[in-house]
Design a protein around this nucleic acid. Sequence first.
RNA 1: CGGGACGUGGCUCAGCCUGGUAGAGCGCUUGGUUUGGGACCAAGAUGUCGCAGGUUCAAAUCCUGUCGUCCCGACCA
Length: 623
Amino acid sequence: MNPEAHGLWSARPFPEATQHRLLFPPSPRLWFRSNPVFPMRWTQTLIPTLKEIPADAEIVSHQLLVRAGLVRKLAGGLYTFLPLGLRSLNKVAQIVREEMNRAGAIEVSMPCLQPPEIWQASGRYETMRDALCKVKDRAHKEWILGPTHEEVITTLVAGELNSYKQFPKNFYQIGIKFRDEIRPRFGLMRAKEFIMKDAYSFDTTDAGAMASYQKMYDAYARIFARSGLKAFAVEADTGVIGGNHSHEFMVPAETGENDVVYCEACGYAANIEKAVSGIPKTASREIGAAIETFATPGVVTIEALSKAPYSVPANRQIKTLVFVADSEPVIILIRGDDQLNETKFMAKTGAIAVRPADAKNPADLAYFTALGAMPGSLGAVQNVPAGWKIYADERLQGANDMTTGANQDGFHIKNVSIERDIKVTAWMDVRTVTAGEPCLKCGMALKIRRAIEVGHVFKLGTKYSVPLNATFLDETGQRLPAVMGCYGIGVTRTLQAVIEQSHDKDGIVWPLTVAPYQVCLTPLSVAAGSPPMVLAEQLYAELTAAGIEVLIDDRDERPGVKFKDSELVGFPLRVGIGEKSLAKGEVEMKPRAGAIQAVKVESAAAAVIEWVRTEHARLNAAA
RNA sequence: CGGGACGUGGCUCAGCCUGGUAGAGCGCUUGGUUUGGGACCAAGAUGUCGCAGGUUCAAAUCCUGUCGUCCCGACCA
């Protein structure tokens, strides 16, 4: 039987660059092909399934990773991949690799240990300081355990690419990243050590960089579709990576750590850190009345001021926030019924470290003393120390007849006309969009939902190529910095996202393309030479020859145990072989997500092959 | 780092308040009966009660410290 004829093989049987230094040997399929006589049996591998939910697993995908025997925790945020988990991980990685290759990217492998000097050169030694894992060697020299590799690849390119003729290039790798996560969480979702595919494109022009970006964007869509994931792209903030154009690929899930704002009418979608809406500015009212201070004893919340006897609606109040931005106190003004979006604030001001001033912190207390009031009575109309920057949300532009704190405890000021009465340093959009606001593009009501970020594409520009000297000579002999992009996929996170999105009450429901084995043969009698076992071994040989990945559950367990475990692990197809159905000349095919169907023994292999082929084609057609 | 919860056989937990012989279920071992949806019977093995101090005649239990784990917030693939 010719595997290619069934369309089960990947684009090429021996993918290039499979010799990664840490992971991902050639596909097990290749091994089976040349060694078809050793069936993979349940009792010979390690699949430690659990009936009970592990105490330290909160979300269902984390529970199932552990219960199905895919991973075990070594310590917080550090996991060992067991045989089944590794197989699925390799499947995802291989899909990523194939699509990267298809998009013209070239695989490399960069060191995990990186010299701090290149991080100092890019400036990220400071800006990413808290996320960096550092180690020292015997000479007490410090090294960085790479959380990402922009500096390394840019250093490489600076040395190796010198002429416009050598561009464009896109290098990628699949490997372990280290981040000193503040709080590892949810199993593989947020780990100290995780596997990432990171790609870096280098172009000579901005237009070229956009084309490279688009190629990756398209490749990502294919990768997630082939992995059986429903993921979608949203506009995103660029954070400490830098750059000016970015999309995140999101998997909708209640357990996700991101809020996505989207419009069903026109397709607008953005991370809430970036999202904008068409909500109108604050309505103008009568102008002219002078500001007036009035007593508001004990009133320290927007809510309290909105009630009798004051009855100032939240949308006529100015909320005054004191933040510490890169060690400098700043005032941020937003409307009383809005919430500050710190990410937008950081992006708009370029600030690196931003936190609210805390009156309980002695160092911060001085800021409130300088203003003359504690939170709850703060304002920007009077008594703002010279040199303090006052940033105001655009929604307040032109607002008058507003009420705000007087910078005197127990007093507020009314009749505030913000442009007349407050020295605003800069106007910017720093409010957080809420569900139901009109879409900026089409006016329809925006919606918000939780999602898991599985991929991120950035257009970087020359942020790294300039400081690290990745330059080239163009046709006219002019030296120019390369225009870069970078593109990440959390491979381990993607794996868990698949489980989070594809499970039921009995366990995982693997998409065929990332299942640890495609078929689980389940003989109900396992004695050597017994008819079910003999048939299982025969089917194993036929299916394996057809390029299908098969596991025989040869455990001497009761049928219920074997059925439950196969559903917990989530093999796409189970073939039950028992004396009862054999008596009728049949076996049972049970797709994980479908109903049992009886199949004649003679046609069993062909039926399984056809089922797998169809399912495989369905997933790849989506890509 | 701030707030909260929890550390007891491999796993899930009880016991702690009110100090005095360390328990259950699952899993594991042996034998038997079972055998198409997580079987049953019998007999077993498995714990320095996270660690270190302290109080006490006596500490899983009370006190202090410490380490670890999980949850909420800031960070990110």
